[in-house]
Design a protein around this nucleic acid. Structure first.
Lengths: 257, 257
DNA sequence: GACGCGCAGATTGTCGACAAGTATGCAGAA
DNA sequence: TTCTGCATACTTGTCGACAATCTGCGCGTC
């Protein structure tokens, strides 16, 4: 009992990390990201600040701060004096997105192999099975969701916080690239590429080079599809109805039991 | 002369991209980034908004918007109700930074090899020579500058906009990691690692795997040095004087000839 | 008929002010 | 002496308002 006073160390110093409550800017940012991803905010559309602020139930100041985060993410482009608009990713920028994805996901694959945990392979197999299942249907957006979910999981299970941060942006950029195309239809590939199977086998075998090659081929196919040089792959197109996802107001957190 | 009117197409439609003037938020963001990189804003120090705003000559609103960009970059950490502080990168996070750098720079090396332009090799050789030259001195910060300049150039010449965006943040994070260490001294390695030479040779030979291996070894050395498991390498330490770089006020752009 | 100019409307950028929350210091009790 | 509770001062978060800027429309002129 006498020792407690002269040593002001906390009781559990190791796992006592500060868990910050999400701020308003965090909530708005997440809401805007979701709106861009779902297509509720169409690609290229300008964002009226007063309208968006009232729709979110907040003032312009936190909204503007949130939009600056998305500007840093390159999801919004700012024109001084002219406001923000949702970034477009035309065919000439698709290759850049997939170059970055190859950098991130190949490194994630290396980290997974380096860690050598088998449980992550099961989770990836499950995500792959879900992708195969959804690809039997005709909902292009659902196929894209399962596809991106697989890739996001690949990076998440690698355990790298920075790679995960980059990937969460790249996932949305990939979706934007699909939405920036011709008209308001979303095109997805219906037959799952065999490179997914190759990637999973390479991860199981611990072959980093084979994993890289699989990803490289998979992305080359995607870039060719996005730039209109698609081969004879079976694709399905779904119109994007903007009403499927609305902007939900930010609700004030009331943290009393 | 008669054709000019009926065809309203711009004169140079291909390279007529809109060059936006830098907004105030851009200027403040660049200034804060520079202050963090130079050590004018010490690692872990809180940022008083009123003081910083008056020092920059702007109001709190654009300053707060700029800081949100840096929060997205992970250069600042926000505690709700408690303000912002410059992020620390302790020894447990150093490996994550270098994992991300390996992802980015290895992909950059692949892109350089894929493009196959010899002029970029000359620029990299020049940056390498500058690093060797500076490493003969005892200014640790100058050595770090030349080191990071080499790596930034490596990514810049790859031509990928997104990799460059990631790298500009990773460069500052690497510097922060060096500044987060023991006391207010910056330690740099004095003898240039032979992995730089190996990387350049691999790029010249078009060997992507060798380039990756060189980077991987180079970063493993750096992580070991940052986490205190340094071997017998020759290091030099320079105290960081915070007065060397002050926060310069944002000057209003007056764009008349 | 086409081009340039000017004005009105709306929107963005910036600022000051209020409200809410947090850190600090002090007094009092165990 | 040490811990607890409270009052105070300061900081942040949010809001409304003003100023600067851009867009669109209409008019006049070449």
């Amino acid at each position: 009992m006498l020792m407690t006073s002269h040593n002001p160390r906390p009781v559990t110093p190791i796992s006592m990390v500060r868990v910050p409550r999400p701020s308003t800017v965090d909530l708005i940012t997440a809401e805007l990201r979701s709106a861009i991803f779902s297509g509720a905010l169409p690609v290229g559309s300008p964002i009226g600040e007063v309208e968006m602020a009232s729709q979110l139930g907040v003032s312009r100041s936190p909204l503007r701060e949130s939009m600056q985060r998305l500007v840093q993410e390159r999801l919004l482009t700012a024109s001084p004096g002219r406001g923000m608009r949702v970034s477009e990713i035309g065919p000439e920028r698709v290759a850049d997105v997939y170059d970055a994805r190859l950098a991130i996901e190949a490194q994630a694959a290396r980290l997974i192999i380096k860690a050598g945990a088998e449980s992550v392979l099961d989770r990836l197999e499950a995500a792959y099975a879900a992708l195969v299942q959804v690809s039997r249907g005709t909902d292009a957006l659902a196929i894209s969701d399962a596809d991106l979910e697989f890739h996001r999981l690949l990076v998440d299970v690698s355990g790298s916080a920075r790679l995960g941060l980059y990937m969460s942006t790249l996932v949305i950029e990939t979706r934007i690239a699909g939405l920036s195309g011709e008209g308001d239809g979303y095109t997805a590939r219906r037959s799952v590429s065999e490179t997914y199977r190759e990637l999973l086998d390479a991860l199981a075998a611990g072959d980093a080079f084979a994993a890289f090659t699989a990803l490289e081929r998979q992305f080359a196919e995607a870039v060719a599809r996005h730039t209109g040089q698609a081969g004879d792959v079976d694709t399905v197109e779904t119109p994007v109805t903007e009403a499927i996802a609305v902007i939900t107001p930010i609700e004030v957190v009331d943290d009393e039991g």
